[in-house]
């Protein structure tokens, strides 16, 4: 016969060890993590409860910052290195506004009004700075090779840090603010702190989901994220939509700044880099570009970090940055697309 021989073969496919080993290792690591959490819970139940509360509180903050990363990445594929530092600036603005201008000291129910003022101001501040950065820098680099906007973001991050380091802003050491918390304490956690964070964060997250999923703006955002040219042809204002995304991200960072200041009662110029790294890890953990993922990732990392710092078998806060980094590396190896993300391959 001269027709092509395409009748099928008896060859056995090779058994591949790689994926199996990878899967087994991944499961082992996961099991170890679960085991670690469980023995923490068994050996120190009180610390465990406290850590979970702290983790929730910090995780909510991380989620707010992570959302800013994930949205900007989702729409223009830029890791906005300056985002963490924007958050840091917002925390300084919040501190100065609440303590120096509005005279907040002991936190009581009367603080609610200054809090709302600070939230509004800081969110506006964050949005304004982020949109300006987009307008002045990133927008001009949209057609440039990817390295250029990335480096610009690094440069801006540097500028923000440099500004915060000035003595008349925050100085180059940690600055403690005379803000005092009261109320009940469970396992070393101020209940009101946790409540405050949740009360502010949850509505914000819901609002964000609503905006992206339901509104016209949100639809435009998703369209631009998929295909800028296509969106433009469909009459969507691409520049406006991208600006809007930056504004949302900046506003969230602003809100996170206020909360961070109130929770930690201190400000530091290096917070941005540290927390930014954590928040980005959270975004990657959840699947970058995915809003729910960012929130879940933020809370997860918050919990792990809190357990590490306060749990019975934790390594202590000296190593928290390293722990987050190890999570990031493990993620990169085993599940770079994150929990909710989809694996993407370049098309030819």
């Amino acid at each position: 016969m001269t027709a092509l021989a395409i009748g099928g073969t008896n060859r056995k496919a090779k058994i591949r060890l790689g994926p199996i080993v990878e899967r087994v290792l991944g499961i082992l690591i996961l099991l170890f993590a679960v085991y670690w959490i469980v023995i923490n819970a068994i050996d120190g139940p009180d610390q465990f409860v406290g850590s979970v509360l702290v983790g929730l509180q910090n995780g909510a903050l991380y989620a707010l910052v992570a959302l800013g990363y994930t949205m900007v990445y989702g729409i223009i594929e830029l890791i906005n290195f300056a985002h963490g530092d924007l958050f840091m600036l917002a925390s300084i603005v919040a501190a100065n506004l609440m303590v120096n201008v509005l005279g907040v000291g002991d936190l009581t129910t009367a603080t609610i009004l200054p809090l709302i003022v600070a939230l509004v101001v800081c969110m506006a501040f964050g949005a304004f700075v982020n949109v300006s950065a987009e307008f002045l820098a990133y927008r001009r680099l949209r057609t440039a090779p990817k390295l250029a906007p990335l480096m610009t973001a690094v440069g801006l991050s540097f500028v923000f840090r440099g500004i915060a380091q000035q003595d008349y802003i925050n100085g180059s050491t940690q600055k403690n603010w005379p803000v005092n918390w009261g109320g009940p304490i469970i396992e070393g956690v101020y209940v009101y702190k946790l409540l405050l964070v949740l009360v502010v964060t949850i509505p914000l997250l819901l609002a964000m989901t609503y905006i992206v999923a339901r509104t016209r703006r949100g639809k435009a955002m998703r369209a631009v994220a998929q295909d800028q040219d296509g969106a433009r042809l469909m009459g969507i204002n691409v520049n406006g939509t991208i600006s809007f995304t930056f504004a949302l991200g900046g506003a969230l960072a602003g809100a996170a700044g206020v909360l961070y200041f109130l929770v930690q009662t201190q400000t530091y110029y290096d917070t941005g880099t540290q927390l930014g790294l954590i928040a980005f890890t959270a975004a990657v953990l959840g699947g970058i570009g995915n809003l729910t993922g960012a929130v879940v990732g933020g809370v997860a990392i918050g919990l792990v970090q809190a357990l590490n710092e306060g749990g019975a078998h934790g390594l202590g806060s000296n190593w928290s940055q390293s722990l987050v980094f190890i999570i990031l590396i493990v993620l990169m190896v085993f599940k770079p697309e994150g929990i909710f993300g989809r694996r993407t391959t370049e098309k030819v």
Binding site: T9, R11, A13
Partner: peptide, 27 residues
Amino acid sequence: MTQAPPRPETAGTPDPVDVNALYADHI
């Protein structure tokens, strides 16, 4: 790895893996 079920070697039908430079099997 999935694979085509082994089939009895029929006379006159050479294994396509051997006779072709490239062979993609039931993709």
